[in-house]
């Protein structure tokens, strides 16, 4: 004789259903986070654009300082067709035209900054002029002077160090350009070699 059919406990069924919904929700959230991260690091292929993906080793950590990086879709980085010999001449940056005010305004607008105080931001060349970066809007972003620990003055230290290494023959120009365009904070840690000190930020 077969055992009588036993209905499952309704409370247990509810618990089981809740658990299932929780798992589905978790999967959706993880997938959304993954897509969001991928869209931040993907760079459109464009003329002279620096196309860089952060390495797997830096990617998880990147989320902790992403607010200090430019939006890679707006500012992928762009370079001039110049060589190491060009940029390592004293006074090179002075040969490059100043960024027109209209282009600076465009950089602020593209980041949604309508007003700002004097000396609050610098319209920064993501790939610095000294590393062959261009004045293209694709290489410009408003970088704060005021955030800590990462800000425009800290990035200047990295730019100087990369320029020194390139001109000393220790680093190919293209490598330096890709490093600073891809993730300037990771590049700072790699090439300057320590976290910024409070004095570096002023």
């Amino acid at each position: 004789m077969s055992p009588p059919f036993r209905r499952a406990d309704p409370a247990a069924q509810r618990r089981s259903r809740r658990r299932l919904w929780f798992i589905v929700l978790l999967v959706v959230v993880i997938a959304a986070c993954g897509m969001c991260y991928a869209s931040r690091v993907r760079r459109p292929a464009g003329e002279n654009s620096a196309i860089v993906q952060p390495s797997a080793a830096t990617a998880p950590d990147r989320a902790t300082y992403a607010q200090f990086l430019p939006d890679s879709s707006r500012t992928p980085g762009a370079t001039l067709p110049v060589t190491t010999a060009d940029i390592c001449v004293r006074g090179y940056a002075g040969k490059v035209r100043d960024v027109p005010s209209s282009v600076k305004r465009q950089a602020y607008v593209s980041y949604g900054i309508r007003t700002h105080r004097a000396h609050q931001y610098e319209v920064d060349h993501l790939i610095s002029l000294e590393l062959g970066g261009s004045n293209s809007i694709r290489n410009l972003w408003p970088e704060s002077y005021e955030t800590t620990p990462w800000n425009a003055r800290v990035k200047d230290r990295l730019e100087n160090e990369l320029h020194r290494r390139v001109c000393a023959g220790q680093l190919p120009l293209e490598t330096a350009q890709h490093a600073i365009a891809g993730d300037w904070i990771a590049a700072y840690r790699r090439y300057v070699g320590r976290e910024p000190l409070p004095a570096d930020a002023h």
């Binding site: 001039l80 067709p81 060009d86 001449v89 040969k95 209209s102 809007i137």
Partner: peptide, 20 residues
């Protein structure tokens, strides 16, 4: 092509004189 980043001037020896 763009308001910037479009003009480059080199002298007869190929030395960069100007970029925008």
């Amino acid at each position: 092509r763009e308001p910037t980043s479009s003009v480059l001037l080199r002298d007869a020896r190929g030395v960069l004189e100007y970029a925008d």
